[in-house]
Computed example of a mutant assay.
Amino acid sequence: MSPPLRALFLLALGLGLSGTLNPKDPNTCSFWESFTTTTKESHSRPFSLLPSEPCDRPWESPHTCPRPTVVYRTVYRQVVKTEHRMRLQCCRGFYESSGACVPLCARECVHGRCVAPNQCQCVQDWRGDDCSSACALGVWGPQCDKPCNCGNSSSCDPKSGACSCPSGLRPPHCFRPCSPGRYGPACQFSCQCHGAPCDPQTGACLCPPERTGPSCEVSCSQDSVGFSCPSTPPCQNGGVFQASRGSCSCPPGWMGTICSLPCPEGFYGPNCSQECRCHNGGLCDRFTGQCHCAPGYTGDRCREECPVGRFGQDCAETCDCATGARCFPANGACLCEHGFTGDRCAERLCPDGLYGLSCQMPCTCDPEHSLK
């Protein structure tokens, strides 16, 4: 490859030109780019055509003097216009490699691979955010010589020693169970029982003798022997009990043995088995998987920047910028082109006849000719 071609190739690679990206790649996002074009515009101008013979004695007979004739002539001027075009780039958290957008981990996955933005999948016997620690469970530190100060056989982070409490135990050290009325990982969920406590691990309701059902919502009949309760499956939130498995098949948005755990962030659907694919800060609905886009973005996966002239949540707001300027898609702030300033980009920075970043470029216009 010749030096000029090599330099051009390296420049294109450094700029990340979108021509090599596949728009069907789920990790490819679009954005709007401004560019300028120079065109010639025509318009008509009036000119006065003086009479060929002068009027020698206008004071004697002014009405006989020939009058100037007004004619129109087409003139041209050079106009610089700002236009916009859609370009492609890898979504936030991804980078281009061989024409595809692959996840980016800010820290190298030493003994593993990057499977999602800043998320490593470690090979066996390696731990930590970057898969660089060979510490066994129960110890941490650079030399793996510090015991985890975590109760109930809980593990800890091999670098920081922070405890990872299993469901039902309260952070930071996992010594105490969840307080009454709470359950789940880090005790973050509230029991869904009608006036009854729940199991701190699973959220299963611990019903009193006179009530039964997944949420203690079914009343039991009473006879001389005591309360007689109907047989009810333990599944919460509409789950269907699978006797062969001894657990529940959960509806969209729920997981766990009795469907008491909401889907963690990034997952949705039945048993939380589907992975969300929302970009640019969009949040995934844990029931349907639909993306709720952050302000400034749209599309089924929030891959598209708001069209030019629109901004805000669901791109529902209209920009209020001077002609030729576009606005920041998140909040509507005007993005001024070189040579303009102000809240609406309506104020010129350069004096008449000059333009450019430092106002050093003279405007070039075709000369206008008049009739004599």
Rank of each mutant, 00 (worst) to 15 (best):
C248N: 10
C205E: 00
T28S: 14
F287D: 13
T20Y: 03
A136F: 07
F311G: 08
D366F: 10
L261H: 01
P142Q: 11
L357N: 04
C272H: 06
V70D: 03
D314V: 09
S160I: 00
E304M: 14
G339K: 08
A330F: 07
R85A: 15
S231C: 05
N22C: 11
Y76F: 06
C284Y: 09
C65V: 04
H292S: 13
G16I: 12
S167G: 07
C198L: 05
S52E: 15
C29Y: 13
N27E: 01
C163R: 01
E96N: 00
E368R: 01
C90F: 04
G282W: 03
T288Y: 02
Q201A: 15
F227Q: 08
W140H: 00
R6V: 11
L13C: 13
H63M: 08
Q121M: 00
E275W: 07
S167C: 00
G99R: 14
P200W: 05
V225I: 12
C291V: 10
G93A: 12
A325W: 09
D285I: 11
E275Y: 02
L354M: 14
P200M: 02
H279K: 12
H338R: 08
N152Y: 07
R85N: 14
P26C: 15
G181S: 12
V71R: 07
L13M: 08
C365Y: 10
E96S: 07
Y76T: 03
V218M: 03
L17E: 04
V80W: 14
P103T: 02
F267A: 14
M86A: 14
A162T: 05
H194P: 13
G168D: 00
L17P: 07
G256P: 05
